[in-house]
């Protein structure tokens, strides 16, 4: 198993875990014509949900971009994102996992990766950039698990030289 040397010193512990309390899940339906991630973040903000685990179980997409990984030519990090790949719809989402929490600037961020199939039946997948996934008329459905007592919040990670979601205890 190949291991990469990260730009910063290895941080401990190597596995972080915080316990969150179970609450009722939410099934969310988004109408077409809006951005998938921004629409979902806004809808959940309206319900007071800023920390969650997300599964997007269906989405019909009119136009979208996704990003895949690449080596970082600057050497400042071991990997970065390459140029976006754009797909014209209809694109069908097959599955997506997401983490919702406060980003490095305090705004709520939905970190989401998805696998989709394009109009010719080809599979694609990667990181979804907010603002670049326009829903078609079929909209989207997500199953959201709000997190209480503990959740993810982004902070600078000196080992990888990225701001990253970290498990964090939440105030009661």
């Amino acid at each position: 198993m190949r291991r990469l040397v990260q730009p910063g010193a290895a941080l401990q512990p190597r596995r972080l875990l915080e316990w969150a309390a179970p609450v009722s899940d939410l099934r969310v339906t988004l109408t077409g014509g809006q951005d998938l991630l921004r629409g979902l973040v806004a809808a959940l903000a309206g319900k007071g949900v800023a920390h969650a685990a997300v599964q997007i179980v269906a989405a019909e997409i009119e136009r979208m971009a996704y990003l895949t990984g690449a080596e970082d030519p600057s050497g400042e990090r071991v990997a970065t994102y390459g140029a976006p790949t754009w797909l014209e719809g209809p694109v069908t989402l097959l599955g997506a996992n997401g983490i919702l929490g406060p980003g490095p600037d305090g705004d709520t961020l939905l970190h989401c990766h998805a696998v989709v199939v394009d109009a010719e039946g080809r599979l694609h997948g990667g990181h979804l950039p907010p603002g670049d996934v326009l829903l078609g008329s079929g909209g989207a459905v997500a199953l959201v698990t709000p997190l209480r007592e503990a959740a993810f919040a982004a902070s600078y990670d000196s080992e990888t030289n990225y701001p990253l979601f970290q498990p964090t205890k939440l105030p009661a």
């Binding site: 198993m1 596995r15 179970p22 071991v78 503990a150 990253l164 979601f165």
Partner: peptide
């Protein structure tokens, strides 16, 4: 039934399956 929720992060170079089991 489903119970507590574990919010987990694995750091670089940890093996996916082994580190989930270890956590």
């Amino acid at each position: 039934k489903l119970g507590r929720i574990a919010v987990v992060r694995l750091r670089p170079n940890e093996d996916l399956v082994g580190a989930v089991e270890a956590a």
